[in-house]
Amino acid sequence: MNIFRLAGDLTHLISILVLLLKIYATKSCSGISLKTQELYALVFLARYLDLFTDFVSVYNTVMKLVFIGSSLAIVWCMRMHRIVKRSYNRELDTFRHYFLVAGSFVLALVVHEKFTLQEIFWAFSIYLEAVAILPQLVLLQRSGNVDNLTGQYVFFLGAYRAFYILNWIYRYFTEQRFGRWISWISGLVQTALYADFFYYYFMSWKNNAKLQLPA
């Protein structure tokens, strides 16, 4: 474990806590894409298949359970919770995310490290996570002004993978082992997708203005 990876995991955890706070405190999920939440639940379920077979550390197991549990809880909340589901922007959250799932799975069948079920699903989860934010970014552009907690949620979610990239660089130089280039490339694509969001987020913070993404 190194400081970059710890910062990445904690930033990821913070993004989930901010999202839970927004939904719980405002009893509303307006501005949140259910499709992105479903994609993330799929990412964690596909990536942590080894949850019960390979024990790495208590920290690793606990964080996996937290990520799987919180993503499923948010999807359940947005679909089933009597009050929360009423504020879901169904008419704006129209990204056809099934194509992202299909595309990532096909890519994983072609590009992976070993042709085993676990490796295929691991690669699938890495590719899918790289594009999972797209429905959320499209929803933000369509929904005009973005409330603070939603903006912070997306910001931390984008920042966590940037820390992971620093972690891979650190490990490359200290452990003399190359990282998994599947993670490298997907992580760079994932972070790049946030680039314009980070720009508008920084500008809104600098000008102390409401976060507005151009349509």
Partner: peptide, 10 residues
């Protein structure tokens, strides 16, 4: 040969 490090990351 250099090996990819194990899946100890989240």
């Amino acid at each position: 040969p250099k090996r990819a490090y194990p899946k100890d990351e989240l």
